[in-house]
Simulated assay, not measured.
Amino acid sequence: MKIEVWSDVVCPWCYIGKRRLRHALARFDHAGEVEVTWRSFQLDPTQRRGDNRLTTEMLSGKYGVPAAEASAMQERVTAIAAEEGLTYHLDKSLTANTFDAHRLTHFAATRGLADDIHERLFQAALMEGEAVDDTETLARIGTDVDLPADEVRKVLDGDAYADDVRGDIREARALGANGVPFFVFDRTYGISGAQPIEVFLATLEKAAA
């Protein structure tokens, strides 16, 4: 079985969805036959590189709500993440253009490290308050998961895998995904959003049958 997951590394619900899928797979009898492929998606492709603001400030402006209300939104997501064993610090999280982070993930996939770098990027963005559009930060994250430093730098300094990222985004749109996380099972069943573990498990069983 092939599961394709469209997500963005600054998306707190995407990390929650990733963790819930993992929990569901732990309860699935045929987990060893499942291949998970990470696909790229940008929640805000217009975000300028290096123009990093606190996400709370961005949410306040985007939804036209007071900063306190935006903080409360973040706190609710943090509490839900904690139920999945994730320790968010969304008060420190920054907006970032994630295009290069997705390019790096595609490179990591060629070395069998897509899941590792995906996990590390989520941690950097949602737990550590890192700017995941900063080249030096991405270079360090690449070496954190044992990617060769010189090859990571070559990817980041050029435009390698840019077409792959754009292709993933076009494909998500073609499949009807307007947001993430979005999970597709064998191109037959889809789950939109970080649904409960039971929904993932039921879909795994249905796809297997």
Rank of each mutant, 00 (worst) to 15 (best):
M58P: 10
E151G: 03
E84C: 13
A79P: 15
A139E: 13
D146V: 14
Q47M: 09
V5L: 09
T78N: 05
F183L: 08
A207W: 07
R49Y: 03
E119Y: 05
D116I: 12
G193M: 07
S192R: 04
G129R: 02
M73S: 09
L147A: 06
E75R: 14
A114S: 10
E4F: 06
L113R: 13
R170N: 13
A208H: 15
A160T: 11
E57L: 13
A96P: 01
S71M: 14
R53T: 10
C11E: 00
V5I: 13
G64E: 05
Q123A: 10
E83R: 15
L121V: 04
A114V: 11
G64T: 08
I169G: 03
T56I: 14
K62S: 05
D8R: 02
I141H: 02
G158R: 08
A24L: 05
H118K: 15
K92S: 09
M127N: 07
L126Y: 01
A125C: 00
L25H: 03
L43E: 05
E83T: 15
S60W: 01
A177F: 09
H23K: 13
D186E: 14
T37I: 14
P66Y: 04
P45I: 09
N178R: 15
A139G: 11
D163C: 08
E35R: 13
V145T: 07
T55G: 04
E84M: 15
A81R: 04
A124T: 01
A139Q: 14
R153C: 09
T55V: 14
W13S: 04
L104H: 01
A81E: 06
H118M: 13
A131H: 01
D8M: 06
